[in-house]
């Protein structure tokens, strides 16, 4: 699944990679960046966290020509120069005005990371920016995918929930449980059809940042196990026979039991409407009742 998402086989407009201090998500982000370079013509890489050189050093040579880096780290709050990239910029406008003019059909945008944007502006503003980027046209090119990194241990739950609401895929990076894997991920993917897929996976990255050895970790569904084990077969270890063969069952169904009505009697009862019971009373002589002397019949 993680392979399908990073390679673009599973369409996802807004991909959110969440990491924390215990496990960095940047290796996965660089892996996604490499696969983006194969799919789209230009990738805009917005740096708010580390300077562009840090990521450039990790890039394969054939990819580096396709990635346009935008440095937002040197002047992050816009104190020195209003024109260079800072958190107060309108990102769509900035990318459209940026110098690296290109005539391409599809672009992708990678934002490393959203955390300064959330901290210095607000979570709703970040959500609006990300969705605007996803539906915008950058220099007349369609945006194929927006990939964002988020340090989730820096923010409160409300902000994280808001970003989860707008993202179509959320990959949470965790330290692996087994040593021979590089990292573990929890993926939540919302398909366009409305289906939601949740997965836990472990994998490693090779030197070219290609994902390898994907192993799915299946969580044990406790409710299901309980359902299955709660059905012991009472007829299993008996000294006598409790089961019936088909022939015996048929013979049993032929037996007429005292409470079963035959067809005609059933129909007769059903055609009579409910609540119309009748009392037939035929007074006999012993019932002759004298109003004057109610105790007439007493033999005292």
């Amino acid at each position: 699944m993680i392979g399908d998402i990073t390679e673009g086989r599973e369409k996802s407009k807004i991909l959110l990679v969440e990491d924390s201090v215990s496990q960095s998500g940047r290796p996965l982000l660089i892996s996604i960046l490499h696969s983006l370079c194969k799919r789209v013509e230009k990738v805009h890489y917005i740096c708010f966290d580390r300077e562009p050189g840090f990521v450039k050093a990790c890039l394969q040579s054939e990819c580096s020509s396709r990635v346009i880096f935008h440095d937002g780290t040197s002047n992050i709050l816009g104190w020195e120069n209003k024109q260079s990239l800072n958190v107060n910029c309108d990102l769509v406008k900035y990318l459209n005005d940026s110098k690296g003019h290109h005539a391409s059909t599809s672009v992708a945008i990678v934002c490393d990371s959203l955390s300064p944007l959330i901290l210095h502006r607000s979570a709703p503003y970040t959500c609006q920016t990300v969705t605007k980027l996803a539906s915008a046209k950058i220099q007349a090119a369609e945006v194929d995918q927006v990939v964002c990194l988020l340090h989730k241990d820096l923010h409160d739950n409300h902000s994280i929930n808001l970003l989860h609401h707008i993202a179509t895929t959320i990959i949470t990076v965790k330290p692996p449980k087994f040593e021979h894997f590089l990292m573990a991920t929890h993926t939540l993917h919302k398909r366009l059809s409305g289906k939601v897929i949740k997965l836990e996976e472990h994998f490693t990255l090779n030197n070219e940042y290609v994902i390898q050895d994907i192993t799915e970790v299946k969580s044990i569904d406790t409710s299901k196990v309980a359902m299955e084990t709660s059905q012991p077969d009472p007829t299993a270890n008996l000294t006598f026979n409790l089961t019936l063969t088909d022939k015996e069952k048929e013979a049993r169904s032929q037996v007429k039991l005292p409470y079963t009505y035959d067809q005609s009697r059933q129909d007769e009862t059903l055609t009579k409407s409910v609540g119309e019971g009748k009392i037939f009373y035929q007074p006999d002589e012993a019932d002759d009742f004298d109003e004057e002397d109610p105790d007439d019949d007493l033999d005292i």
């Binding site: 607000s122 709703p124 609006q128 808001l162 707008i166």
Partner: peptide, 8 residues
């Protein structure tokens, strides 16, 4: 939703 500038 956050698109209306609402923060929960």
């Amino acid at each position: 939703s956050p698109m209306w500038g609402e923060k929960g």
